[in-house]
C-alpha cells in the first residue's frame, strides 16, 4: 500500500484536521445548503419524524397533535426515511463520519463501559430531544444556524445552553464519572 504512506494522504485522510479547518468548511457548507435548499442546516427536526413514523406504525396517531398541524411537519409525516430530505441528510452524516473513520483505519466498536453510561445516555438523550423541540433547534439549528440567521432566539439559546452545560458539567463530575 504505497498510497497510504504518501505524506499528502497522511495529512488529509489519516490525521485529524484542525478545528479551524472544520469551522471554515462547516460554515461554507451551511451557507451552501441554505442557498440550495432555502433552509439552513438543522438536525433534530427529522428525529421527531423518525419517532412519529415508529409511533404511527405501532398504532399511535401523531397526526392529531398540534405539532403535526404545521404544514411541513404534516407533509413529512406522510413521507418515510427514504423520501424525507432531512432524514437522508442525517443518515448521510452518520455514513460520512463512518467513511472518514474507515479511510483513516480508526474504526472500533466501543462497548458501553458501565451502568452510569447507560443512565447518562438515556437521560441526556431525552433531555436533548425534548429541549430541542420546545426551543426550536439544537446546537446546529438554533445555535449555529439561528445566530447566523441574525435571529434573537439563537443568542438566547446559546446563553441558556451555556448555563445548561455548566449544570451538566457539575452533574457529570458528581454522578457520571
Amino acid at each position: 500500500m504505497k498510497l497510504q504512506e504518501h505524506p499528502f494522504f497522511k495529512k488529509i485522510i489519516k490525521d485529524a484536521w484542525s478545528y479551524w479547518t472544520g469551522a471554515i468548511l462547516l460554515a461554507v457548507l451551511n451557507v451552501a445548503l441554505f442557498a440550495f435548499s432555502g433552509h439552513p442546516w438543522g438536525i433534530t427536526t427529522p428525529f421527531s419524524y423518525w419517532g412519529a413514523w415508529v409511533f404511527k406504525a405501532l398504532g399511535g396517531q401523531p397526526e392529531n397533535w398540534v405539532y403535526f398541524q404545521n404544514p411541513s411537519h404534516a407533509k413529512a409525516l406522510e413521507q418515510n426515511i427514504f423520501t424525507n430530505a432531512g432524514s437522508i441528510q442525517n443518515i448521510g452524516i452518520i455514513l460520512g463520519a463512518l467513511l472518514a473513520t474507515l479511510l483513516a483505519s480508526q474504526f472500533k466498536i466501543k462497548k458501553i463501559k458501565s451502568y452510569k453510561q447507560v443512565i447518562a445516555a438515556v437521560l441526556g438523550g431525552l433531555l436533548m430531544g425534548y429541549g430541542a423541540r420546545i426551543a426550536f433547534g439544537c446546537n446546529i439549528g438554533a445555535y449555529f444556524s439561528g445566530i447566523a440567521s441574525m435571529s434573537l432566539h439563537g443568542w438566547v439559546w446559546a446563553a441558556f445552553a451555556l448555563i445548561g452545560a455548566w449544570i451538566g458539567s457539575k452533574l457529570l463530575v458528581k454522578y457520571f464519572m
Binding site: I112, K113, Q117, L172, V173
Partner: peptide, 12 residues
Amino acid sequence: CLGEACPVPLLK
C-alpha cells in the same frame, strides 16, 4: 480511559 467519552478522559 478506554470506553470513556469526552470529557472524562481529559478530567481524569
